[in-house]
Design a protein around this nucleic acid. Structure first.
Lengths: 221, 221
DNA sequence: AGGTTTCCTGAACAGCGGTTCAGGAAACTG
DNA sequence: CAGTTTCCTGAACCGCTGTTCAGGAAACCT
């Protein structure tokens, strides 16, 4: 698919190593010496490709989105799926289920924190939110146009979907035992299903596949 | 109210300085030399009170919650307020409106990030979520019992409220121009109002009331 | 081939910052 | 007051890590 099928250049290896290190050690915990070892190069080479550590870190923070941002969207699976199923898949793809998704989430959090402090990163964060918003709003509008969803403000609902994903996703990410990913997924989908009024005829949205009780996860204390 | 009305001890000053520094510079950006200057003590004294930097940081991370956690709840203002108004005030007190609330949010994000990486912090994060959950669930149940809210699963709704607050709150925190705090507040309140079926007769929930300073429920400082 | 640009390295520099230590002042005993 | 514990400090130590620098190898011209 992508034209960089050959051996990744040293610069790319450094960046991917940086991304992985950021996810595991935190953006401040990144040491270029270790990072160079990960990439199999000398630490001096890092400074050959990147003027300063901060610049490398800044670029590394944007690196996965430059790629995944466009890959994620076309990944929509079967063309004939209903809008509800599509939306469900979108929600699931956003939540921290797999290991790579968890890494992305940590990067995501790191970006929030940075953006909250220095306004320089805000445009970037806003752009990411904008892309996600557009993704969801488009799907919702399509569902409305096809008569599958109830008429509503697609922009508002897209924002609500993003907020629910972020809020429940974080709970799942930090491993809150009362909020496993599956429950997070169901909570997000359920809330949206109610707003879209697909509560009755829904197939995937907000319900686990049949034969499985609603699992009341009430808090102990 | 609190018995520590006298001059704060050096240890306390160090901790509050640490909290402020964490919020402004990030937990990794904290330098005990600067921190000591903030507190007006020598850097050696910091190591007299705290074995190591990490221990100080860990304690500082919990410090504001030890105090504010219990202050926040009893501060509910007028006894005669409706449950919807109460809920509205609770939402507003949680969102990053004022400067202190913003600092708390940054600390909150920092905690998420830490907890996502090292499981040691998770119980603490879970406890915080548990307290907030209990706060909201109790209020919702009371509203249901009084017939003001529609009958529903209070636990589920409390979790949804928390998720919405977190999700919209982050957007507001990083200064997304499409999501100012006021819109975030309205979005959270509106979504809950719909779920609680107080959409028609609501006064405060989800709508800005005319010409009335919303009561600041934030912890003093 | 010779020249030039692009990659890449080992080794050393520099300074920041956590931590330690010997000891002073103040408070608190008795 | 003398003795003891609690606070508190200035100064030095020292390890870690970002950064630099002089130069080597490889590729790429012409």
């Amino acid at each position: 698919m992508t034209p960089d099928a050959g051996a990744p250049t040293a610069r790319e290896r450094i960046l991917t190593a940086a991304v992985r290190r950021i996810a595991s050690e935190g953006i401040d915990g990144v040491r270029i010496a270790r990072l160079a070892m990960d990439a199999g190069v000398s630490s001096a080479l890092v400074h050959y490709h990147f003027e300063t550590r901060d610049q490398l870190l800044a670029e590394a923070l944007e690196y996965p989105y430059k790629h995944a941002g466009e890959i994620r969207l076309p990944e929509e699976p079967p063309g004939g799926a209903s809008h509800a199923e599509r939306l469900n898949a979108m929600i699931e793809s956003c939540l921290p289920g797999s290991e790579v998704q968890r890494d992305d989430w940590v990067l995501w959090l790191e970006l929030w924190l940075r953006a909250a402090r220095e306004p320089g990163l805000r445009p970037f964060a806003e752009d990411l939110y904008g892309r996600l918003h557009h993704w969801f709003a488009t799907e919702i509008e399509a569902g409305i146009a096809d008569g599958e969803f109830e008429r509503c403000d697609a922009d508002d609902l897209a924002d609500r979907a993003l907020a629910l994903i972020d809020g429940f996703g974080v709970r799942a990410l930090i491993g809150d035992p009362t909020m496993p990913v599956e429950r997070a997924r169901r909570s997000v989908a359920g809330a949206l299903a109610r707003d879209l009024n697909v509560g009755e005829r829904l197939t995937a949205l907000g319900s686990v596949e049949a034969g499985d009780e609603p699992k009341r996860l009430s808090r102990t204390n």
